[in-house]
Design a protein around this nucleic acid. Structure first.
Lengths: 272, 272
DNA sequence: CGTGCAATTGTCAAAATACGAAAATAAGCA
DNA sequence: TGCTTATTTTCGTATTTTGACAATTGCACG
């Protein structure tokens, strides 16, 4: 029988697996239940929880339950302040949003395992319909411009195995029914330099996404989300090059940061 | 010789200690340097980094460096959405901020080890001077109204050991020069139900803080930060009871949440 | 202010694995 | 292509981890 549980060979991995139990749907765990879920004894589960609590990654709440802890909030702040892509992206995005029509949003996203995560979001002028793809949320690699342009730049062997395991999802999202079709579509995306998708994630929105690289490997993407009713091909034709240019700017800013960091050891000046 | 390094007896703890290497001042680490800092072999450090990277807690960046990873952003979102105190606090704070003068801020803070962390912040109307105590940031237990009101409600034995180890910091922050004075001041704070401090963290601000409990143990505090020039005793006299009432509301909302969660297993309904 | 029940922390020997050193690969870079 | 640096493997040994059980703590409830 094939299980889709991750094979965890070492004890350290098992302890970290505790963290992945905590999801939005199940945000509180008791030690007992977690022990059962993980397939370890209660004693061991208590040990894991204690360590994670000491590290601040978990925090006890009333009556024997635990939730994710404050160290996460702290580290998130650190990422906000220090993460190279986020730092570079923030500046560029603040600038770029001015070109957007009312009700638009800019997203900065990042590849994470086999999905894509939004790490920053800048809203434009005007009333804003809610964006379902908010900061911290994961979406599949096959849905939306944001994801597709990242997908298109994954290494061939990764693509092959993704295709094998997700043929249905891939067909559903219009990326082709055969491996050859799939390869073809992605190749086109790469040539165009940007992906455009209509209403794949949020019904009322059009997405335009450009890839962000570090060296030769794909890191994430920068995308415009525009209100569908006010978006035609002319607008897309104008904003696509802008998005691509923005992505290049982010890359440039990142490599400059990296160079500066090498010259004098990486220190960001901030109030502590 | 006394070292102030944490004694880490187990391997799991050592692995988690990797995470605490990452600070705002040193947000990028190479495996080699981290290995040296942790006092483990390079091989072991590679193992730790690999595990943490698999869990998404770290993320490689160019040229052999690592930074905190995307799982943290994801978990932070989860906390934003699910954390009982944050959920309860958000609602109450949005309401409460209306009572504040221009340029005010409301903070929701939480005890974390021997410090206090801001977990949520709501700005009032009007131009806002920067608040140094922003979300995710830690401050000592002895500085500012926010901290002092939490300190005042720690269990006696904790207070005793805190006093022993921080006599200087405590004296500096006006909490007393002797154990008896210290006890006296804290007792007064407890009786008042709220702490008031002027310019202890940000020079131009006055803080009014009320404690938030869960059961009998102190969890955190709710505080108003007001612009000092527009704040007199009359205003403080009005806002202090409001702050206290807000804290009680948060407690009530939390216990209601907990009750609801027990009735039907804890699930928060959110778009995924 | 006990009493009882659940939560949590020791104890200990067997079993698993983490450890470091050195060698082997892989990955940039010129 | 070579060269340097980063990362993974290998392997025998020492250390930890693990789980069953016992002991203890800590609330909640009367």
């Amino acid at each position: 029988m094939v299980t889709n549980e991750l094979k965890l060979s070492s004890s350290g991995d098992r302890m970290l697996a505790v963290l992945s139990l905590f999801t939005i749907d199940r945000s509180e765990w008791t030690v007992d239940v977690a022990a059962e879920e993980l397939g370890v004894s209660a004693t061991t589960a208590y040990r894991y929880f204690k360590r994670l609590t000491n590290a601040g990654l978990l925090s006890p709440v009333s009556r024997a339950s635990y939730v994710l802890g404050p160290a996460i909030v702290q580290m998130d702040r650190q990422i906000q302040i220090c993460d190279p892509m986020l730092r570079a992206g923030r500046t560029v995005m603040k600038d770029l949003i001015r070109y957007a029509t009312e009700g638009s949003v800019l997203l900065l996203c990042r590849l994470f395992h086999d999905r894509v995560m939004c790490v920053h979001q800048v809203a434009g002028r005007g009333p804003l319909e809610p964006v379902s793809f908010e900061r911290g949320r994961l979406i599949p690699l096959f849905l939306g411009a944001t994801s597709k342009i990242i997908l298109a730049h994954l290494p061939p062997r990764t693509l092959k195995s993704l295709f094998m395991q997700n043929a249905v999802a891939i067909a559903d999202s219009g990326l082709g029914n055969t491996w050859d079709e799939f390869r073809q579509r992605l190749s086109t995306l790469r040539r165009d330099g940007a992906a455009v998708a209509r209403g794949e994630l949020d019904p009322g929105r059009v997405g335009i996404a450009a890839p962000i690289f570090e060296g030769h490997s794909i890191l994430g993407s920068l995308s415009f989300l525009l209100p569908a009713e006010r978006t035609d091909d002319t607008l897309i034709g104008r904003l696509a090059p802008l998005t691509i240019a923005g992505a290049r700017e982010i890359e440039r800013a990142m490599s400059q940061q990296a160079a500066a960091a090498t010259a004098s050891p990486a220190r960001v000046r901030v109030a502590r």
